[in-house]
Nucleic acid binder design. Sequence first.
DNA 1: TTTGTATGTATTTTT
DNA 2: TACATACAAA
Length: 750
Amino acid sequence: MDNKNRPDYLQSLNDMQYEAAIHTEGPMLILAGAGSGKTSTMTRRIAYMIREKGIAPYNILAVTFTNKAAQEMRERVEQLVGGSTRMWLLTFHSTCLRILRVNAEKAGYHDGLTVYDPVDQKAVIRKCIKAANVNEKIFTPKMVLARISDAKEKGVNSAEFAMNAASPREKTIADLYRRYERELLSNNAVDFDDMIWRVVKMFEEYPEVLEQYRQRFQYIMVDEYQDTNYMQYRFVKALAGKSRNICVVGDDDQCIYEWRGADISNILSFEKDFPGARVIKLEQNYRSTGNILKAAHSVISHNRQRKAKKLWTAAEEGSRITYKRLQSEKEEAAWIADCIDRYVMEEGRQYQNFAILYRTNAQSRSFEEVLLTRGIPYVIRGTLRFYDRKEIKDMIAYMRLVANPDDNVAFTRVINEPKRSIGPKTLDKISILAEQQGTSMLRLLTDEEIVGGFTAKASEALRGFVRLIAECRAGMEDLSVSDIYDRLFEGSGYLAMLERERTTEAEGRLENLMEFKSAIADRESENPEMTLTEFLENLSLDAEVDQGSPESDDKVVLMTLHGAKGLEFPVVFMPGMEDGLFPGWRSLDTEEGISEERRLCYVGITRAEQKLYMTSATTRTLYGRTEYTKESQFLEELDSSLLDELSDEPGKSSYPTRKDGYAPEVRYSDSHRPFDPIRAQADVIKKKSRDIQRKNTKAAGQYAAGMRVRHKKFGEGMILEVSDNVVKVAFDRAGIKKLAAGIAPLEVIS
DNA sequence: TTTGTATGTATTTTT
DNA sequence: TACATACAAA
């Protein structure tokens, strides 16, 4: 194809990529193989729409699955179009949550809508299981939630579920589903499935709302289409139904989340859903050497039901895949460590060139042990997320309670954290009473009569707790998020609790909470007007936070095969190529199960740029049991002419080991540090919090009902009521607001 | 209400 | 093996 007439930013595309980029009208399916330049193509397509076709960014919706992908795409688009764009380039969940917030009332919710993560969901369903008084051995939270999620993905509500329930077991699940649904609604909360589903439902119930968004989003793009579930498909189809300007990008061979609801048939039947769809295959790979691609192809071609395609490369053949069977998982790890050492010593490679990709997280241990003793730097990516830590979740729960007083899960989480002598018994009472009165647990406790009904100790604690939350809620308009955080952290006694403990664990928690504070400050400096609600929303949708400093550090990367999707490394190790481990034993009995594992294997192989190693162990200790293993069937499926199997060389170790001493990282315990930054920060927080409190208690006296006041943001109004340091003002224009007496910039006029 | 001890269970997890 | 949860005792 003649490149001459292309705009400069399209010059670098190959013919297929170019065609995809300039095809803007009507449905299109881009089958983008691994490493085929998918993101380049997509971002250039958007740039082309904006720059050449004059399409307003306002009219474009681009949906991804991860925040990371969305962020990366946005950056690259902005580079291409020069300057920032206010286009909707978001994850499915952010997209739907935005729509849901704007139309909260129509969807049955109200202001302060909270997002429940899996831990919150579990808390809710456990409560439901208890309340329903059913066999907890059979109806485990995990199983029930899986069924509910499944139903929501299919758009089946609890009433419909109940109608389809034939067996007693199904009827029980229907009942639990009903309770769960009701609980979330009364808590003004949505789970991840709800975000998509409620929007789709609202589109059905309010065609004018759908029409409005159809008008807006004339052009729609969907990334990773093979991973969409049925409800996401419905969402996309509804929005694109009229304009039909929909471009989906994906690779059916990389669908590895079927177990989570991803429906591979969405991509397989796209041409049926959108007749006349243009199909473009991106098959040129820019990542791997020839042998790696051939190996990947030999494995994946054992799958039936796939779109015919074959990656090719202009690069050289490269070396073959090396396979080695070791004695145990310990030797397996040692062998891989040797390999890395050798590369580093002989070729001067950097550690970050290597990735160890395993099937299960449990496998990481043997690698950690070996790498640690050898002094090889490494990072484990994607395990416990920062925001999943207990102390972080606790503080988030406090903040959530301020933003949404209906959030019973948040209430239950922190009412006795730190210990306030509110045990399960008291909690039960509160819960039942709240339900009877049709209110939330926190709101119930604003009733002095009810609070007084508990023991002196408990009622005192409850009063303090409620006052703190109310004070922060009243301050929401005028305090920054970090101010609120400081006030909650100190005022709740959480800070004091951690300081009292004096264990290394408590120190670590304190450190994490300080880091959390700086994360808040970071976001605040980017967006000084950030509200608490906004902050919480971003948190719940963005699990990925700067995990130390991953990219820049020169470290071997350890992660699961699932986590590796979308990434690439010069040298990749795939340990644990054993039947029952990979493919996993739970997938063995179905064809679809094996197929998905095979796709996972394909994903793993195609992560490698230059060299791929596979290993297995004849005996493996898992869950404290040592067992003999059989080699993975994927090894047999892999074209043997591409595989070099290394045998044992008796008497000598096949690879040199690192002898030179490696100085372990020296860390001084906190008590030996001349200056303790954590303690210093804690003092700042304490001061800030007490400052807020002091201002508040002092200030209430100067206001009285009936006074006219002026507020910086809300203008003039009249005080309706003053109680507990909270001033209730009816503003002439902004409506009724509750404000913190000492914080709000109120000026008495008369 | 808190604490210690027994018991059962165990892929993968973008949001 | 290792962790979370359930239950009993103080």
